[in-house]
Design a protein around this nucleic acid. Structure first.
Lengths: 111, 111
DNA sequence: CCGCTTGGTAAGTCATGTCTTACCGTAAGC
DNA sequence: GCTTACGGTAAGACATGACTTACCAAGCGG
């Protein structure tokens, strides 16, 4: 999914609570909804949106639906954010190149 | 500002366009609004929101208002995102330890 | 087989936020 | 001075989306 979907989806506070609740590990809907200030159907709807955005995944266990975090869903958003620093870096490089004739090439690594 | 403010503010597509348009460097309101599908006042409103969230800054040049990117405004959001991967590391350690323990004990799993 | 739990979906209400037009103050140029 | 470009703010229209209750299907245990 796109970083834009992640942004849109994580903008809602309640939905963010749902999402954060999965940090602790996979959980059925009931457990997620318990302690949240909204009804269980509301949580269901949030989970659907999160799933469509690729931020959570769902597996069935009997009558239970177990939801868990999909961290890969955050990757694009993270890249997008990083790209702003890349911009700054690029501008810096150009500036540096203008003053020095030679530029050393740098390479980033990722995990 | 908080990562939550950044999320909320960047969720809107038009506002994101305004924000991205500042990647190229500082710009007065007119230049930002040109080419966008919304009116100039709409852009003004978006800029106000972005400024309140600490994502842009404003300086006056005569009658012009020059807006520019504040990358530090994205820092908290980036940290928040990173923290999910930290979670994963931690969870992995815990999980490893638990499964190790499980080899000596009987099955007892819940959350 | 029957009831109970789990949870997804429908329909409708209500709030929020994004837009518009109209208006205003302010700086610069003639 | 007067006019013109720049842009912030107000007020109101409108759409979107987050909630509610009611309902339904599916698996499990008595």
């Amino acid at each position: 999914m796109t970083y834009q979907a992640a942004l849109t989806v994580l903008a809602d506070p309640t939905r963010r609570q749902v999402f954060e609740r999965l940090r602790g590990g996979p959980s059925p809907v009931n457990a997620i909804a318990a302690g949240l200030p909204v009804s269980r159907p509301a949580v269901s709807q949030h989970l659907k949106v999160l799933k469509d955005a690729g931020l959570v995944e769902e597996r069935s266990e009997g009558v239970r639906r177990i939801y868990s975090l999909r961290r890969e869903g955050l990757a694009e958003l993270r890249d997008w954010l990083d790209s702003f620093w890349d911009d700054a870096l690029l501008a810096f490089k150009i500036e540096a190149e203008r003053s020095h004739r030679q530029m050393k090439r740098t390479r980033d690594v990722d995990e």
